[in-house]
Design a protein around this nucleic acid. Structure first.
Length: 507
RNA sequence: GCGGCCGUAGUCUAGCCUGGUCUAGGACUCAGGCCCUCCAAGCCUGAAGCGCGGGUUCAAAUCCCGCCGGCCGCACCA
């Protein structure tokens, strides 16, 4: 049986310390993954790049708040109503139903809000049966996509692990708005864990029960949905798959300039279009090919309860097809309005120049970091003949350079270690390897995407020069040891070409 | 959650049907060494495995049951 790319990649990921299933010692638990020594660093570097985009370039403010939320918050946000459902299943045909829906369908009565204990009785009394096949419905069970827990002793205070990081941003809105010195639009980001108790998590790291998300909430005046830098992206093309086309069964996407998409009313406003383009650039910057990126408009039935328009950034993968890595939702004023209502606190802002009050609207770009991580790995996985390597962007590679002695003798290992240590003192993430042949060491480094290898050979002992080898081309240049940090810095952080930092070596 | 298939070192796999020299074999990998003046060479040595639990049996990797996990399909993914 031929093993596909995904399987080979996952072998590599487990073997070389990127990711593996959690709790393996105890048989494993579905929906949880550990990030190993290299995976942690890669993930961190993806997050670092995300911050470059949203915190540095957009100038958004980052917060970091608890993962456990008290029940009131999620009642206000609508998650308690939309995430926790009483379910039943037809004993004959196996179709699962939301109890509220099936009762409404069969009896026409709306039992929303009825205490759980009475619902079963109600169903029995009304002899509710399967609307599809007439079969008997099984007993009611609770399907709770949020992890519930208790805050403090006793059972008085119910808490949930957050299903998204966004909520505390809305809750902190007044302080954050003041921090932003009252000007809108402004953006707040949060990077952290989210939790969803998936029924059957599958597809490895694509659907996790605990995952890392990076979310930005952009607050703006609904009468002025402009982005100050929109002109920078107005002419950029984006690939869209419209909801209306999906409903018609059409699989074709359309390519359109951001500006046009807003003008034609395809995308709701400038801000949304701006962040669609930004998301595309971010993904390309991570090494995802442009052709493997599209934006799918969610159909009304697929949208979250808080969203009036959602665009999913999808990346094409070999194994899973198009995978959603980010969702851009127009949350309107839903969250701030609900939190105003439930808390009694006025969360509107006053616009002094126009002398009016407004509840800010929100555009939310929300990224699944674990899925992005997978897509980055899959798209960097290269097999050429018997050579396998990760063509990771230099700035993402967990190990920045390998340092090897050409041979295991003549003082080369000792010299290599002094070079290694000097690079470490300069802040480079470098690793030493003297096991096996030089070719094997290069192969090992290539396999985890290490972009450069520094080799100490006999000439080093004579003139204090070393070679730097490029992962993708295997070409080498020779540089002086004292210029090595500068050379690596140019290569890793300034995007310099190999031949610009040293003397090419003919071999 | 339902149905089908599956679970042997770090990875891939032989063995399972037809229980017994299986003290579980191989390849790759990994560690130590030899050799070696640049791309997974070769040689020596070593580490490492039957998902978990129960049952049947004189005897279980092998047969049976339960659980856990994985893959595929349905549903779910707000």
């Amino acid at each position: 049986m031929k093993r596909d790319k995904h399987e080979k990649l996952m072998d590599l990921a487990k073997r070389r310390g990127f990711i593996w299933p959690s709790f393996e010692l105890y048989g494993g638990v579905g929906g949880f993954y550990d990030f190993g020594p290299l995976g942690s660093v890669l993930k961190e570097k993806i997050i670092r790049k995300w911050r470059e985009y949203y915190v540095i370039r957009e100038g958004f403010f980052e917060i970091d708040s608890p993962s456990i939320l008290p029940e009131e918050v999620l009642k206000a946000s609508g998650h308690v109503d939309h995430f926790i459902d009483l379910m039943t299943e037809c004993q004959k045909c196996g179709t699962p139903f939301r109890v509220v829906d099936v009762i409404k369908e069969v009896t026409g009565e709306d039992i929303e809000g009825m205490p759980r204990e009475e619902v079963q009785k109600f169903m029995d009394e009304k002899h509710v049966r399967c609307p599809d096949c007439g079969g008997e419905l099984g007993s009611i069970f609770e399907f709770n996509a949020m992890f519930r827990t208790m805050i403090g002793p006793g059972t008085k205070r119910i808490g949930y692990l957050r299903p998204e990081t966004a909520q505390t941003i809305f809750i902190d809105f007044k302080r954050l708005h003041r921090y932003a010195r009252g000007k809108i639009p402004f953006g707040i980001v949060q990077i952290g864990r989210g939790f969803r108790n998936e029924i059957s998590p599958r597809q490895g790291i694509i659907r996790l029960r605990e995952f890392t998300m990076a979310e930005a909430e952009v607050f703006f005046d609904p009468q002025d949905p402009h982005h100050p830098k929109f002109s920078n992206v107005a002419g950029k093309k984006i690939r869209l798959w419209l909801a209306s086309d999906q409903e018609k069964g059409k699989t074709e996407t359309m390519e359109i300039k951001a500006e046009q998409a807003v003008k034609n009313g395809i995308v709701c406003n400038e801000l949304m279009a701006y962040y669609i383009v930004l998301t595309k650039h971010f993904l390309i910057d991570l090494g995802i090919p442009e052709g493997a990126i599209r934006f799918r408009q969610q159909t009304p039935g697929q949208r979250a309860h808080y969203s009036s328009e959602t665009w999913d950034a999808e990346v094409l993968t070999e194994r899973f097809g198009w995978v959603e890595v980010a969702g851009l939702a127009y949350r309107t004023d839903y969250d701030l309005r609900r939190h105003s209502e439930f808390s009694g606190e006025d969360l509107s802002v006053f616009l002094p120049e126009e002398r009016r009050k407004v509840i800010c609207h929100v555009i939310e770009p929300s990224y699944g970091i674990d899925r992005t991580f997978y897509c980055v790995l899959e798209h960097s996985f290269v097999q050429e003949g018997n050579r396998t390597y990760l063509k990771l962007k230099r700035e993402l590679a967990p190990i920045e350079a390998g340092v090897f002695p050409l041979l295991n003798r003549d003082g080369l290992p000792e010299k290599a270690i002094t070079v290694l240590e000097s690079l470490r003192l300069k802040g480079f993430h470098v690793e030493y390897d003297e096991s096996g042949s030089i070719g094997r060491r290069y192969a090992r480094a290539d396999e985890v995407g290490t972009p450069y290898c520094v080799t100490i050979d006999h000439q080093t002992l004579e003139d204090d020069t070393v070679t730097i080898r490029d992962r993708d081309t295997t070409a080498q240049v020779r540089v002086k040891i004292e210029e090595l940090p500068k050379a690596l810095n140019l290569l890793l952080r300034e995007g310099a070409a190999l031949q610009d930092v040293g003397v090419p070596m003919g071999l």
